[in-house]
Design a protein around this nucleic acid. Structure first.
Lengths: 232, 232
DNA sequence: GTCACACGTGAACCCTGGTTCAGTACTGAA
DNA sequence: TTCAGTACTGAACCAGGGTTCACGTGTGAC
């Protein structure tokens, strides 16, 4: 990179308002372009040149705002994830409602939103691109899981849910609905993705899994032992 | 690539047994090396040179057995996935047992095996590397989901499970346990990954989610409507 | 033992795409 | 209007790593 924007020394130590505004605008356009490119073409097609083109700036300009490609996409992705996380937390944290209901609504909402966002969701959830970017994805998953874990803990303490490992089940819920989102987008699943049906179904699954009464149970689930061979 | 192995024309149209054996062995070593490298270092570090080195062949030799890097890793990955899928199907398809029990055991077994395999599982589940390779991963997920969907359908027909969308829940189960595997491996989760505890917990979650009695339910789960803005 | 031929080798090639940087166009104070 | 200094530009640069291929070596029929 050359110099981070805004390191003037002489005349104008601070960029003038007009310039600052233009810069801020360019930065916004670049992030926006990055998002659109990923949503439409996936990370695979997300080249700096393409983003620059769509944002109407030169490739070099991008490096005036972001130190590297990875950091540009990280930031874009982080913003997206933070937004989704906020939405989820807003629901899981709503006071005065049964944990069961909050759980169902949070899951359904997430899935619904993701299915609207189509491409972006797909890329964000599964397509990889670079360790730095992947880290953002992993962190986001962890935070989502934590949000649900918290909710589960609450539910257990309130006597609404049976005793369980909140951490593991929180993660399981996240996995369940992320996969639920990806499967339709990847064109699997029987019927065409019907947002409502899918989100409700997944939500019920999660709800039941956590809050439901276990089926009349033979007490021991066991991993059928089998060598995990390291053979060819 | 030069010429696929075994295209001799003149003297020996078919490679002599000795040579054939040596070739087969090299091929095996290469695949094996690919697997070890991925397990130990992840796809990111999986360079042809590294694999060649570990397999004790020259880089060029690899191209005598595989047309490209992607195809080498695809094949390796496919083999791993097929094996796991077989294990799962063996359990979900066991005749004469309650669907509930088969479900629990299948999930627990998968998780248990994956947690033993550590690195490989992680790479296989989440680390990406190339569209061709990713496709294998996606296919495997789809097949796993199908296996569980079949089981669910059976359970529903047998009156063991309540009415539900088998396709969606099958995918959800897969997502749930894959995430369950990844989370501990990524060093999240409270306690150190205790294989038994984790696999049992996830299995119970899946079991309950599908076969359990839904919690006393306010009838409507709904996605809280909120704009999925395409804002910066 | 000899020889023709395919196998195995690994250094060199080359393509892709991120990053740089010398040049140009603006900006705004004097 | 001038001019110092900054922001923008985009062609050129460069690195990483997959792929190739001209060359020795091993093999096995004669």
């Amino acid at each position: 990179m050359t110099e981070p924007v805004g390191t003037g020394t002489a005349r104008s130590a601070r960029p003038s308002p007009r310039v600052a505004a233009r810069q801020a605008d360019a930065r916004r356009r670049i992030l926006q372009a990055a998002r659109v490119v990923v949503a439409e073409q996936g990370f695979a097609a997300a080249q700096i040149a393409v983003v620059a083109d769509m944002a109407d700036v030169a490739t070099g300009t991008i490096y005036r705002h972001f130190p590297s490609k990875a950091s540009l996409f990280s930031e874009m992705l982080r913003a997206v994830c933070v937004r989704e996380l906020e939405v989820v937390r807003a629901i899981t944290g709503e006071p005065g409602r049964r944990a069961t209901d909050r759980l169902g609504d949070a899951v359904a909402t997430f899935v619904d939103r993701a299915l609207r966002g189509e491409g972006l969701a797909y890329a964000v959830i599964v397509e990889p691109m670079d360790p730095e970017v992947d880290q953002v994805r992993l962190d986001a998953r962890a935070e989502l899981a934590a949000a649900f874990a918290d909710l589960i803990t609450e539910g257990v303490e309130a006597g609404e849910f049976p005793e369980q490992d909140a951490g593991v089940r929180g993660a399981a819920i996240v996995g369940a609905f992320l996969e639920g989102v990806v499967a339709p987008l990847a064109g699997r699943t029987a019927h065409a993705p019907d947002r409502d049906a899918v989100s409700t179904e997944i939500a019920r699954f999660a709800q039941t899994g956590v809050a439901g009464t276990p089926p009349g149970t033979r007490p021991d689930i066991r991993a059928v032992p089998s060598p995990t061979g390291a053979e060819p």
